[in-house]
Design a protein around this nucleic acid. Sequence first.
DNA 1: TATGGCACATACGCAAGCGTATGGAACATA
DNA 2: TATGTTCCATACGCTTGCGTATGTGCCATA
Lengths: 183, 183
Amino acid sequence: MTREDWADAALAALGERGLAGVAVEPLARALGVTKGSFYWHFKDRRELVAAALARWEELAVDAPIAALAEVDDPAERLRRLVAIAWERPEHLRAEQALAAASEPEVARAVAHVTARRLEFLVQAYRELGEPPARARQWAATAMATYLGTGLLLRAAPEVAPTDAAFRALVRHFAATLLPASSR
Amino acid sequence: MTREDWADAALAALGERGLAGVAVEPLARALGVTKGSFYWHFKDRRELVAAALARWEELAVDAPIAALAEVDDPAERLRRLVAIAWERPEHLRAEQALAAASEPEVARAVAHVTARRLEFLVQAYRELGEPPARARQWAATAMATYLGTGLLLRAAPEVAPTDAAFRALVRHFAATLLPASSR
DNA sequence: TATGGCACATACGCAAGCGTATGGAACATA
DNA sequence: TATGTTCCATACGCTTGCGTATGTGCCATA
């Protein structure tokens, strides 16, 4: 039982039961240990949440940005980003639990992640020739669509009943998220 | 102190502190009364959440649909819907708290509301001449964008620093959410 | 001016989660 | 074989919120 085991379990619980579900004693039961283990690896619950947030930023921001760093064509970069972002729908679940959280520390982490993502998007849209203000609008639209998809799939799974339907929907996203001049 | 006062306070708390913030004793303190008042008007906390959800459906679904019932042109109906939906950003806050909730009863209510909204959207896109599958994709895109805007404004308020910028962003939404053939 | 009900307040027991304090098994080290 | 460290279990007190039971002021009605 390592510190990383706890952080991963916390991130999973976050996606399934929300931030309130990241509770020491229930997690301990699920992992088959007691609180004694937890308080050996962590100072308190805040530290666990912080570790889960750090893990999330790695998986959700650092990895994708690194994977797309060497794609020169901005339109192709955006298309691949769409593909990566919607690749595993289960990853979307932790997203909204975090984005909807009202705890100040979580909000700070979410704001940081969002700022990095928006920066990446604005850069791509600018390379497509969009002026700054419009590039920011396109970036905001893309972010909103992405974040909202997690909420939508939770509320209405029937909008993408099959894998094929989901992929078709993502293609539709990709089409609406590129300026007409760049398709 | 009426039942409606409690339901409104619950809905407000939902937007500010999430579903976990809809707690009887803190609400009572905020309202300047005690639990005695609450348990006079309600059986238990579940009933309060149900009342808040019902209030939400009225404000967020029944009212807009009624207001748009007599707009014959579907493109104009969608444009007005965008204007109404993003009219008061503070209303967006309760949205994602609800949509991200993991409680089954809340999920059911959210699913019901989402289904009604999607039905309304699909109908409009079909009237625009889109075939069924594409109409559903457009509807899903519009819903995702709407839901995601709440999350985005919370995570990155700087994407719409002024009222003018926010209105410009909403105009951008309206443009991307209409098929090119219907602009 | 008694009397019922209405709309609360007060006081209780209970469960769940947090954090701490301490005990103990297993293993390495000397 | 003693000793120390690691990793976890157990047991405790504390807080917060839920739901219930009961007390109480007030107002209408007769």
